[in-house]
């Protein structure tokens, strides 16, 4: 029970962080069809910006300024980069963002060095909020939960209650029709791309000190975000939300359950010994492959339900 509750909380925190990253990517991918490889780089930039800003004027201004900076960079990328490349089709866009991700990583390495930077949780939030069965739950994690929940609310309100939100929604499901109706779709694209990058930046600001801020953080975070987006389905923020939480929980709980295929077979009266074929594979416990489970699920969902959990279009 105790393990269950703590794992649930941890899974939730991680899932919400994933959601912050993935929500922007979902918007960009479903609207513009751009598989933005540089998305996780914005996450990294957010963390580094926040670190630098917090050195001078503190964490709280950084919480606002760093995502805005990321958003500006996103807008610039869309207006002067992606829009030109767009004419040459999706492959060109894909390669463009891929190159961008590599360049950003190198720039970060050159400006902040290869070593992790000491980006720390602000003192105001650096205390254990409560104890669950003796395990401290840091206040900062609660803060992360709150920020991501706020953000989810804000996006949802923005998309359903504002005019621009309605246009975005229309462009999400029927991009051609929306532009045929005379909406300035390119400008919406810029807006969505900037907003998506800003969200990734915000995730970086609060994720950078929760994890470790280092040049490899984009590289390690990138793949899992794609899994979330594809799993959740194109054009669905709800799907993305569910997928994020699910991935967070799966990765957390996979660690807790020390079972292997051999244990499962034993339930059916089939005992695996060292002479059984594939005994090595059968004896691998769940925690050892926990980090790979999301990718397994990605493969499965692409085979059996290509449009994702709540998707409205095929991937």
């Amino acid at each position: 029970m105790e393990v269950f509750v703590v794992s649930l909380l941890n899974g939730l925190v991680y899932g919400m962080l994933l959601f912050m990253l993935a929500s922007g990517l979902t918007l960009i991918l479903s609207m513009m069809g751009v598989l933005n490889f540089a998305h996780a780089s914005a996450y990294m930039l957010g963390a580094y910006f926040a670190y630098t800003i917090s050195l001078y004027i503190g964490f709280w201004p950084a919480l606002i300024i760093a995502p805005l900076l990321c958003g500006l960079i996103g807008a610039a990328i869309e207006m002067w980069g992606l829009r030109r490349v767009h004419r040459n089709g999706h492959i060109a866009e894909l390669l463009f963002t891929f190159g961008l991700a590599l360049i950003i990583e190198k720039v970060v390495q050159m400006s902040w060095g290869l070593l992790p930077v000491p980006y720390r949780v602000p003192e105001l939030l650096d205390f254990p909020l409560f104890k669950v069965y003796g395990t401290q739950f840091p206040a900062y994690r609660a803060f992360m939960l709150a920020i991501s929940a706020l953000m989810f609310g804000a996006i949802w309100l923005g998309l359903t209650r504002t005019r621009i939100g309605l246009v975005i929604q229309a462009a999400l499901t029927h991009p051609d029709m929306a532009s045929a109706l005379g909406h300035n779709v390119p400008r919406i694209f810029t807006l969505v791309f900037a907003a998506g990058t800003a969200l990734a930046g915000l995730a970086g600001v609060i994720g950078g000190n929760y994890q470790v801020t280092e040049p490899a953080m984009a590289f390690t975070m990138g793949p899992i975000v794609f899994v979330v987006v594809v799993f959740g389905g194109l054009g669905s923020l709800t799907g993305c939300f569910i997928a994020s939480i699910l991935m967070g929980l799966i990765q957390t709980f996979a660690v807790v359950f020390d079972v292997s295929l051999a244990d499962l077979l034993a339930k059916f009266g089939f005992v695996v010994t060292s002479s059984t074929p594939f005994a090595e594979v059968l004896n691998v416990t769940l925690p050892r492959v926990g980090a790979l489970l999301p990718f397994l699920m990605l493969v499965l969902i692409l085979v059996f339900r290509p449009r994702g959990l709540m998707g409205t279009r095929d991937t």
Partner: peptide, 9 residues
């Protein structure tokens, strides 16, 4: 990316 579940264990 997150070792908290291991810590719980």
């Amino acid at each position: 990316k997150d070792f908290s579940p291991y810590m719980t264990k």
